[in-house]
């Protein structure tokens, strides 16, 4: 058994997806915690302080590399699975009654993931890239709180963000519990718990994220 199998065998690929997926879920927890700082409504003081820490700490930079690797693996592997699986039924059914046996979002992980990817590109272009660029060229960070207020003043951007977060919610709805199944969790005792946590997570986290553009746009937070 070679390590290569981990990336090319049908179960190995799923294990990579599950592992990176859970890692990204952890990242979401960190991210949403930082975001939640704006709800203190202290004109972004705490938020900027935490963002500054995240942007400058060496350890975080190392973790950031890991995060990018995780993202890339998850995305590339996901697309490869999607591409591979979509070739397994060359002639499609005339009548496809899958709605009777499964959730649409479970069957649409590739699509949802792609939407999240597009959202991610926009999101990085909005914040991470300009901030890093500014830091490298000017030696100091942007005021991210101010930038956020600027970006979220556009209703189109807010709608894009909301769309991305809805995709994330459904992606998590399936992905959270699916990752645990891939790791072999089959006990009747734990499945309902994990499923419950997964659903809660898939709703609470995107809602918390979504509150940010909404509240900023509505100028509740300033």
């Amino acid at each position: 058994m070679k390590w290569r199998q981990l990336f090319i065998s049908p179960v190995g690929r799923k294990i990579v997806m599950a592992f990176t997926g859970l890692f990204l879920i952890l990242f979401l927890v960190v991210h949403v915690t930082i975001n939640a700082c704006i709800f203190l409504n202290d004109h972004g003081k705490t938020f900027n302080a935490v963002a500054h820490f995240m942007g400058t700490n060496i350890l975080i930079h190392f973790l950031e590399i890991g995060l990018f690797v995780g993202f890339i693996l998850h995305i590339i592997q996901g697309w490869m699975i999607w591409a591979s699986n979509s070739k397994k039924r060359p002639v499609k059914y005339a009548v496809w009654g899958a709605s009777a046996n499964s959730h649409w979002y479970s069957r649409s992980m590739g699509l949802l993931g792609t939407l999240i990817f597009i959202f991610l590109v926009i999101h990085l272009a909005n914040f991470w890239v300009p901030n890093r660029y500014h830091y490298i060229t000017q030696g100091e960070e942007l005021n991210l709180f101010e930038r956020m207020k600027l970006i979220f003043s556009s209703p189109i951007i807010v709608l894009i963000y909301l769309g991305g977060l809805v995709s994330l919610s459904y992606h998590l709805m399936h992905g959270f519990q699916s990752a645990f199944r891939t790791f072999g969790m089959n006990s009747k005792r734990y499945i309902p718990i994990v499923r419950g946590i997964g659903i809660a997570f898939a709703i609470i986290v995107p809602v918390l994220f979504a509150l940010m553009p909404i509240l900023v746009y509505l100028k509740v937070i300033s």
């Binding site: 049908p10 799923k14 699986n85 899958a98 046996n101 479970s106 069957r107 399936h174 891939t182």
Partner: peptide, 22 residues
Amino acid sequence: MIAQMDKEGFGSCSNIGSCEAE
């Protein structure tokens, strides 16, 4: 068995659950 499944041209599992339901 899983290697053979792959070789035969079956897809991988996404834990969707259609199989169990049907």
